[in-house]
Design a protein around this nucleic acid. Structure first.
Length: 771
RNA sequence: UGAGGCGUCGUCCAACGGCAGGACUGCGGACUUUGGAUCCGCGUAUGAAGGUUCGAAUCCUUCCGCCUCAGCCA
């Protein structure tokens, strides 16, 4: 364990449970396994932060492993970019850098072992034949004619595959599992294919390469990974993952695969294919275009690793397919940048402001703090103020709308860090367009303690002592929230995702801003000095994110409707989906095929069970027989049925009833105990859970566990008193009127007796005491 | 529906049989030398229906909806 913040999600729960149970010798080893065939994006960042975060929180380690099993798509360039990105995120793998290709020899040895064990064979069919034989979801596959080839023959062929005697596609190694398996991935999956291609690390040493489903579990096992965390679409691969490991073990630790929902982000695409397309078709300038959701792109936009971490914490980890509101990312970025950027003045779309009351030959060097409102932080620079200034065109309106707080004829506004000015008129060109605003200033309006009320503050720069700058205004790459849902995602690119601010000027202090530094342009947003294109004296700024702008939000058109709420489920019930075959149909079919089961159904109804209960118990002979055996011991069929159906079923889960340590006669005796009033239902459940796991005699266990029903009033009163003592705060709130807390109090009192108290009596006593 | 998953405020995530909570967004308000930040306030969400239970988002059943899988990709 470490003192790193403990993540709270279902995977952390699993890790904690494993640690508690002493599994894997207390080790926690995760891994991040990218294929080096593209750049990492924010979805990978979620996975990286999850894997590294989990290991760090539980005193484990995380491996960086390149899953380089397909030589035709993978390149060294990507290997390097990926390492840089992971490191930039603040994740360290230490000496644990691995490549799947480093394990090729061991993997191959495993393949030979499978062949010798009769668990794999070389198939000499064509790709089309193999596909054809795989069957479909509804139709089982058929066996390959080479499926029963003797192991010695397969082994020879496999060796010749490796030796390069066979051309691409001439043969593959297949696992021998089951061509009728309901999971199509298990229908004799391909394990190795021939690829006469140069690999970025192993060169031409190999001409056969393992498939993902074979390689991945082995890589995990070789490295000692304990928790192999991947995304939801690999759920059906898990069965094959387990088959490979179980066929080739034993392993210590034995890796386990878990899946979580990959990230989807609004107004963004995250599929490798689409990202690659954007790059290849020059819709963006490259993988590191600041509009790209790649780590490289976000880095160049000015996003920090800390912001990405905050974002990851914000969205959590679960198994729901969900689309995260891009506003969350923006919130994390703003929150991070807020505290780390000095405030500067820049005008993106200038309009001349002539301060007619200011002498033309006079310039005042105003001392303006870098951190307004945070004097403790210190630091300031001189900003020249003169007669000719530039303000933002959007900050002036001749006919201002309601609630306008900026400059307008006859109105006053403060120039940030400087004087209050009043608009006296405008200057127009021949066409009547405003070319300048005329103003006068209030000389007394600046200085310590000056608290003159004006409706607003605007930013500005000196007309000649400011410097031109390249300012790139980035916005969301897509115009719709779910570009993936479009027939062609390229059709919904946001045409304004990059706007160059024409004529933008920044205050002189920013002329030589260092590449890679971050600034807030007052009232506008956070900007990053581009590390590639910026030059001293000719700075280039990338807008990372705008400031939250309630005025713009108010005046902008309402965003398009979010995705429609789920269709209301048709309530007409039964008939609607008659075509489908659910478990209910299966049971009905079983009875139709077996008159004995049908007779049981009738008998159960005769015993007083509901139609539904009788149906549930008579769909399977094993269940019915088990039930009958229990009823033979305790002839209250309704009770036995309810306990079996509602409680035992949940406890048994997938396990067959017959395989439980709990025999039907013991179960019948347990239900009898409840019916006789010797066990409360709550205590009965506790006892049942115990017996399902460990077996034993109900009555003996009941006594040993102290579960026998408590219905003497003194004992219940004592329990209630203890509960009230322990839950004093809740009791007080209850008395104050929060009646919903009664349940908490009942629960506390029940727990005082291990569920053995009579609930009705507890309620009664509680009510009296709380009255 | 062959198999495997998933359904909780507009969005994302909690609640592990006992008070449906947090964050984002949005909307008010206060404050403000950033229409920023900050502070305060505002919530008819457990897909539906049955059942078990003193008590169900949670357990059981049925139904509905969504996602993934039939590459010699990963």
């Amino acid at each position: 364990m470490s003192d790193a913040p403990r993540p709270s999600n279902f995977l952390a729960d699993i890790v904690e449970a494993d640690l508690r149970a002493g599994r894997n010798g207390g080790r926690v080893v995760t891994r991040f396994p990218p294929e080096p065939n593209g750049f990492l994006h924010i979805g990978h960042a979620k996975s990286i932060l999850l894997n590294f975060g989990l290991a760090r929180a539980y005193g484990g380690r995380t491996h960086l492993r390149f899953d380089d099993t397909n030589p035709v798509t993978e390149e060294t360039e990507y290997v390097e970019a990926i390492q840089a990105d992971v490191r930039w995120l603040g994740c360290e793998w230490g000496e644990h850098l691995y490549y799947a290709s480093d394990f090729f020899e061991r993997m191959y040895a495993c393949a030979e072992r499978l062949v010798r064990d009769g668990k794999a064979y070389v198939d000499s069919q064509t790709q089309d034949q193999i596909r054809e034989q795989r069957g479909s979801f509804e139709r089982p596959g058929v066996n390959s004619p080479f499926r029963d080839r003797p192991p010695a023959e397969s082994l020879d062929l496999l060796r010749r595959m490796r030796a390069g005697e066979l051309p691409d596609g001439a043969a593959v190694l297949r696992g021998r599992i089951d061509m009728a398996h309901p999971n199509v991935l298990m229908r004799d999956p391909l394990l190795y294919r021939i690829r006469h291609a140069s690999h970025h690390r192993t060169g031409d040493r190999w001409c056969i390469y393992p498939m993902y489903d074979f390689a991945h579990p082995l890589e995990d096992a070789f490295e000692g990974v304990t928790h192999s965390i991947c995304t939801l679409e690999f759920e059906s691969n898990r069965e094959l993952y387990d088959w490979v490991l179980d066929s080739l073990g034993p392993w210590d630790p034995r890796p386990r695969q878990y899946e979580f929902a990959r990230l989807s982000l609004g107004y963004t695409v995250l599929s490798k294919r689409k990202l690659l397309q954007l790059v290849n078709e020059r819709r963006v300038s490259g993988w590191d275009d600041p509009r790209m959701p790649t780590i490289a792109g976000m880095r160049r936009r000015g996003v920090t690793p800390e912001a990405l971490r905050d974002f990851a914490d914000l969205i959590g980890v679960a198994k729901n397919n969900s689309v995260v509101d891009i506003g969350k990312l923006e919130f994390a970025i703003r929150g991070d940048l807020e505290g780390r950027t000095p405030r500067a003045l820049a005008v993106l779309n200038p309009l001349r402001l002539v301060v007619e009351s200011w002498p033309a030959d006079r310039t005042e060097e105003l001392d303006v703090p870098w951190w307004p409102g945070e004097p403790a932080r210190g630091g300031s620079r001189k900003v020249p103020f003169g007669r000719e200034l530039l303000i933002e065109r959007d900050d002036f309106s001749e006919e201002p709308p309601k609630d306008w707080k900026r400059l307008a004829p006859g109105r006053e506004v403060r120039l940030a860090g400087g004087y209050v000015v009043r608009c006296e008129g405008v200057v127009r060109d021949a066409s009547g367009a405003v070319t300048a605003v005329r103003a006068t200033h209030d000389p007394a309006s600046r200085g310590e303690g000056e608290r003159r009320k004006v409706s607003g503050t605007i930013h500005w720069v000196h007309a000649t002592r400011s410097v031109p700058a390249e300012v790139r205004l980035y916005d969301r790459l897509f115009a719709v929230e779910q570009p993936d849902a479009e027939p062609d995602f390229l059709q919904v690119l946001n045409p304004d995702s990059l706007v160059l601010a024409k004529g933008a000027r920044v205050e002189a202090a920013l002329a030589d801003a260092a590449p890679g530094t971050r600034w807030q342009f007052l009232r506008q947003g956070y900007f990053f000095v581009d590390p590639v294109d910026s030059r001293p004296g000719a700075p280039a700024f990338n807008r990372t994110i705008t400031l939250k702008d309630t005025w713009a939000a108010r005046t902008a058109a309402k965003p398009e409707a979010r995705r429609a709420k789920r269709e209301p489920a048709p309530v007409d019930g039964q008939g609607a989906a008659a075509a489908r075959k659910g478990r209910a149909e299966l049971r009905a079919e079983a009875r139709a095929a077996d008159p004995e089961l049908a007779a049981r159904h009738a008998r159960y109804v005769g015993l007083g069970l509901s139609e539904e209960e009788a149906d549930l118990l008579s769909g399977d002979a094993a269940v019915a027989t088990w039930f009958d055996a229990a009823v033979a011991v305790h002839p209250n069929a309704r009770s036995v049925a309810r306990w079996l159906l509602n409680d035992l079923a949940g406890l048994a889960r997938e396990r067959a009833l017959a395989s439980l340590p709990l025999a039907p006669d013991a179960f019948g005796r347990l239900v009898a105990l409840v019916d006789a009033g010797r066990l409360t239902p709550a205590a009965g459940k506790a006892l049942l859970a115990e017996l399902v796991e460990k077996g034993g005699d109900p009555e003996a266990r009941m006594k040993a566990l102290g579960l026998e029903k408590v219905d003497d009033r003194a004992a219940v009163e004592a329990a209630v008193a203890r509960a009230l003592e322990a839950r004093r705060a809740e009791a007080d709130r209850y008395r104050a009127g929060e009646k919903k807390l009664f349940g908490v109090l009942v629960g506390a009192a029940m727990r005082e007796t291990g569920g053995a108290a009579d609930a009705a009596l507890v309620r009664k006593v509680l009510e009296e005491k709380l009255a």
